[in-house]
């Protein structure tokens, strides 16, 4: 306890004297897969930022270490549950995910491109929406609730097999109008506190807001295992939490607004590695 108090005091002392810059550190997953946590900003963002930085660089030493080894990453427990679900038949067609897709490793490269335009649906779809399309249209199973346990765990499993690959969502062509909508939302100052995503995560990343170290708000690490609620969290749920904290009426996970915002925020991280399931506060 005494040690903890000391640590907290040390933090106060440090943050009082020095600005809280992101750390200079390198992430190698399981001692074999290099993860890009810092790279040049994508062209569409170059007016606002020179570099894009993973939230991993803004977390403490222990949290960063926990994410570097799958045996220490509590998010991988949920991935294992989803791996089982991958092999388990569900719905009236008697199919599992693996009936069509074989090993989940065959899905490497899928996560980095979502959200993406879906020609049949005529709209931008998130990975969770695509999963549900498989469930309802090909498996005869019920759709999973947005960001709920089964869905977020499967999204994390699909992310885990793409770790180390660069985020690469398309922002032009038919996806452009949703991307523009997401950008508009990113810069809109909502709620009684009149705060936009950009106020904190573009203009003030690296600074402390009370006890929180502001990151760039990148979502390359989603789904995220949060130490504060000890489960996997989806990007839409995190958006909702942030908007709630501006004292605003939020949007719902799975809403058109959050689909658009997810596409836009993902595009701000084009070039960073897929990291999910990552570990954050």
């Amino acid at each position: 306890m005494k040690k903890l108090t000391g640590a907290i005091l040390a933090t106060v002392f440090t943050t009082t004297l020095a600005s809280a810059e992101p750390v200079d550190d390198t992430l190698i997953l399981n001692e074999e897969t290099p993860i890009v946590t810092r790279t040049a900003a994508p062209a569409h963002l170059s007016d606002a930022l020179d570099e894009v930085l993973s939230g991993w660089l803004f977390r403490g030493t222990e949290t960063r270490a926990m994410q570097s080894d799958d045996f220490d990453n509590p998010g991988m427990i949920f991935v294992e549950q989803a791996m089982e679900a991958w092999e388990t038949a569900d719905g009236t067609a008697g199919k599992s995910c693996s009936s069509c897709h074989n090993e989940i490793e065959s899905m490497a490269g899928v996560k980095p491109t979502y959200p993406k335009w879906d020609e049949n649906a005529g709209s931008v779809q998130t990975l969770q929406m695509q999963m549900n399309e498989c469930r309802t249209e090909r498996m005869g199973a019920e759709a999973w609730g947005y960001d709920k346990g089964p869905a977020i765990n499967m999204e994390a499993a699909l992310s885990s097999v793409s770790r180390g690959m660069p985020v690469n969502v398309a922002i032009d062509g038919p996806a452009q109008s949703a991307w523009e909508q997401g950008k508009e939302l990113y810069y809109t100052r909502t709620g009684q506190l009149e705060l936009s995503c950009a106020n904190c995560h573009e203009d003030n990343y690296g600074n402390m807001i009370r006890a929180d170290h502001l990151s760039q708000g990148q979502i390359n690490g989603f789904p995220v295992y949060r130490l504060k609620n000890t489960k996997l969290n989806g990007a839409h749920s995190r958006f909702k939490g942030c908007i709630r904290d501006t004292r605003a009426e939020t949007y719902a996970p799975g809403s058109d607004e959050f689909i658009a915002l997810e596409l836009y925020v993902a595009s701000r991280g084009n070039g960073l590695s897929v990291e999910g399931p990552s570990i954050r506060n």
């Binding site: 709620g191 009684q192 506190l193």
Partner: peptide, 28 residues
């Protein structure tokens, strides 16, 4: 300025009911 306006009741976008995430009501 990023600073919230502490004595203002109009002109907000999607004002909420404190930190509930719900819409503001007549107690705003």
């Amino acid at each position: 300025s990023m600073m919230p306006s502490f004595y203002k009741t109009e002109g907000f976008i999607r004002p909420g009911n404190a930190y509930t995430g719900e819409a503001a009501d007549d107690t705003f």
